[in-house]
Amino acid sequence: MMQPANLQEDPRDDGTVVHLSGNLAVAHLGDLPEQLDAISRPVARIDMAQVDHIDTIGAWTVHRFAARHKAEIVGASEDATRLISEVGRDDEPMAIRPDPTPPLQRVLGEIGAATRMAGNTMVGLLGFFGATLVASWTLIKHPRRLRMNAVVQRLEVVGVSALAIIGLMSFLIGIVIAQQGSVQLRQFGLEVMTINLVGRLTFRELGVLMTAIMVAGRSGSAFAAQLGTMKLTEEIDAMRTIGVSPMEALVMPRVIAAIIMMPLLGFYASIVAIIGGGFLCAVALDIPPVTFVQRLREVVPITDLYVGMIKAPVFGLIIAICGCFQGMQVKANAEEVGNRTTAAVVQAIFLVIVLDAFFAVFFTWVGWI
């Protein structure tokens, strides 16, 4: 049976030697800490050769005593030495509040961190786009592997379920464009040019662009949340384990659905916006619907429709890839799902607007003005 903790003092010329013995576990320390605190003479060494056992509390007691007297610990076993060393390593002063960072350094640090994060995200997005192309080529070579049921379901989610909200938004946007345009053009007596403004703006830019923003907020976020939840519950890892490619089973149906539905939704939104603009022209400007349609056919070239329909599938591809990429990046906890969903929407809208600017410059350069 182990003896309780005990100490003996051995006064010497170079300082007192404290001999510890017995069991230095918390249950057997007894009044050893009080006895050590009562020693006021200089202590040169602490001899632990007779110590049978020591735990974290005992190691902390010995370390604190040795640190106070700046004494050397001798005779300790290998385990005791390692435990006292680990306890001593944690015995460091800790600042309650970090030292204030200079404002310029903090701003530069935040800019650098944001730049690094943006760079890593773009590299990851390009890699995910490459993986999507590889999966597309695989499905082209092996059409039987395409999951048509999943594609049809995503077509309904992305397109059919969004008709109401996109239609309402487009109708109101058409009214706003016509109303604001007529107010400005009335100064020059050119209220009839409101038809030009509504027709060209909706077919060429706003119809597809606003639809892309709505789809990014509605379907892009849904893609990220769905895949993120599956990643969090390890369903995607289980699919890989049984030999099912997540890119083919989860990502490609969503990408295909977004590419197919975006031109249809963009055209639908443009038509509804035209109807909204025609409604305001009939009510506020006394322009009959027949005159509105006739003027529209004269002033809106077919290239405006082509421009919108060319941009639409590219926007759909970007939205689907951003949503799926952010969903596949979810790790650790449920909060990450919300963060990645938000990132998917912001990233998709940003890239859509950037690409729309590039398209505007490109089509102007080729003469589709």
Rank of each mutant, 00 (worst) to 15 (best):
G75R: 06
V361E: 03
R82V: 12
R297W: 10
C281H: 04
T291E: 14
R145L: 15
L209P: 00
F65A: 01
G277C: 06
L355M: 15
V314E: 05
G199M: 10
V183S: 05
M252Q: 04
S270W: 10
P246F: 13
A269V: 00
R68V: 04
G58I: 03
P102G: 13
K311M: 09
R204L: 09
R82E: 12
L351E: 00
L201M: 14
T115R: 02
M48S: 11
M1A: 12
M1S: 13
V299E: 05
F129K: 09
P103W: 06
A320F: 03
D79G: 12
A258K: 05
D91W: 13
I195P: 03
T61I: 11
E92L: 15
T291D: 12
F362P: 00
V255W: 03
M2W: 01
F223N: 01
N339K: 12
A49S: 15
V152T: 15
V314K: 04
I274D: 00
V43D: 01
V330R: 01
V251T: 13
H142W: 08
L280K: 04
R200E: 15
G207L: 06
F292V: 10
D91R: 05
A257W: 07
M230I: 06
A76C: 10
P289S: 04
V337P: 06
W60V: 13
R204V: 09
D52I: 07
A257P: 08
T229F: 04
G243S: 04
S219F: 13
D47M: 08
I195M: 01
V299N: 04
A118D: 09
A118I: 09
F65D: 04
E205A: 03
A59Q: 03
S77P: 03
Q329K: 11
A25F: 08
I54K: 01
A273I: 05
A238G: 13
N333L: 03
R64W: 01
R145E: 15
D356V: 09
N333D: 15
D237W: 11
G228H: 05
V337D: 10
F350D: 08
C322T: 07
